[in-house]
Simulated scan of single mutants.
Amino acid sequence: MQLSRSARIAVRAAAGLGFAVIYVPLLLVLVNSLSPDRSASWPPPGLTTRWWSAAWHSSGAREALWTSVRAGLGATAIALVLGTLIAFAVARYRFFGRDALSFVVVLPIALPGIVTGIALNSAFSTVLEPLGVGLGLFTVVVGHATFCVVIVFNNVVARLRRTSGSYEEAAADLGADTFRAFVDVTFPLVRSALLAGGLLAFALSFDEIVVTTFTAGPGVQTLPLWIFDNMTRPQQAPVVNVVAAVLVLLSVVPIYVAQRLSADTATASRV
């Protein structure tokens, strides 16, 4: 489709405005983390790395970072197992309720986070507390896994639908059992989809705050919760800017890698 010169200019201007709305605030966070002032000011009077050193020596920020990493790894592990199993069931088998199962699996990502958080908090209080299991890191991992499963499921099921089941059938005809066919044939075909789904699930878990607020116990504080609790404290404002900048960078890396993996796989499948 050919666009007129004025239409191309309008589209580019709209795209530039949209990108500016998204990325300029992120750049401001990075600039403020290097500003010597404790309060946000523009333009910054200079540049310093003092706040980065202070953030590095902040025990609260380091503990919150480690908690976020553990929660993200736990939720990703659960999502990889459950999401992959459900994806294989939906893509490779025909059974009653298959479409309903797909809908139920994908639904949590569409629900508002506060609704999921309230529902999980109520369920944990009703089921786990009578058993002596209170809110803590375990409940955070389970809460994050509810929506991380969707990410893995979508990646794996999309790959399986583009991959013919004749490969597994050929392996079975050659004498391979189910496990051997999966290891030698199926897993190499879906490996990049699993990695991309795992990276996206970890990134989604790492910066989640709404569900975490309702599922974390009094002694559990992830990095987003630490930022939220300290952003109103004037003395902590520069350190919060540093931690927020680090959070953005840590979230970008897995998303970029997952996007590259998905792009490379799509190109290879067309070839």
Rank of each mutant, 00 (worst) to 15 (best):
T49V: 15
T49R: 15
T49L: 15
R50S: 14
R50I: 11
R50E: 14
R50V: 14
W51T: 08
W51P: 05
W51C: 09
W52A: 12
W52K: 13
W52D: 09
W52S: 11
S53T: 12
S53F: 10
S53H: 07
A54T: 09
A54S: 13
A54V: 09
A55V: 11
A55Y: 06
A55G: 09
A55T: 07
A55E: 00
W56I: 06
W56A: 15
W56V: 11
W56T: 05
W56Q: 09
H57F: 13
H57E: 07
S58G: 08
S58L: 06
S58W: 00
S58H: 03
S58N: 12
S58Y: 00
S59H: 08
S59E: 07
S59K: 06
G60E: 04
G60H: 00
G60S: 10
G60T: 05
A61D: 00
A61S: 03
A61Y: 00
A61H: 00
A61F: 01
R62K: 09
R62H: 06
R62M: 12
R62E: 03
R62Y: 01
R62F: 02
R62A: 08
E63K: 07
E63F: 07
A64C: 02
A64D: 00
A64T: 04
L65A: 10
L65V: 11
L65R: 01
L65G: 03
W66G: 06
W66K: 02
T67V: 11
T67R: 00
S68T: 09
S68P: 06
S68D: 01
S68K: 03
S68L: 13
V69G: 07
V69Y: 03
V69C: 12
V69M: 07
R70N: 10
R70W: 12
A71G: 13
A71I: 15
A71N: 04
A71S: 12
G72Y: 04
G72A: 11
L73R: 05
L73E: 05
L73C: 14
L73A: 15
G74T: 11
G74F: 09
G74I: 13
G74W: 06
A75P: 04
A75C: 09
A75N: 01
A75R: 02
T76R: 04
T76W: 05
T76G: 09
T76A: 12
T76V: 10
T76D: 03
T76M: 13
A77R: 09
A77M: 11
A77T: 14
I78L: 15
I78M: 11
I78D: 06
I78T: 07
A79I: 02
A79M: 01
A79T: 03
L80S: 04
L80G: 11
L80E: 06
L80W: 07
L80Q: 08
L80C: 10
V81I: 11
V81G: 05
V81Y: 01
V81P: 03
V81H: 01
V81T: 09
L82A: 15
L82P: 12
L82Y: 08
G83Y: 02
G83T: 13
G83C: 05
G83P: 12
G83S: 10
G83V: 07
G83Q: 06
G83L: 02
T84M: 07
T84H: 07
T84K: 03
T84E: 08
T84A: 08
L85V: 15
L85E: 13
L85H: 11
L85I: 14
L85T: 14
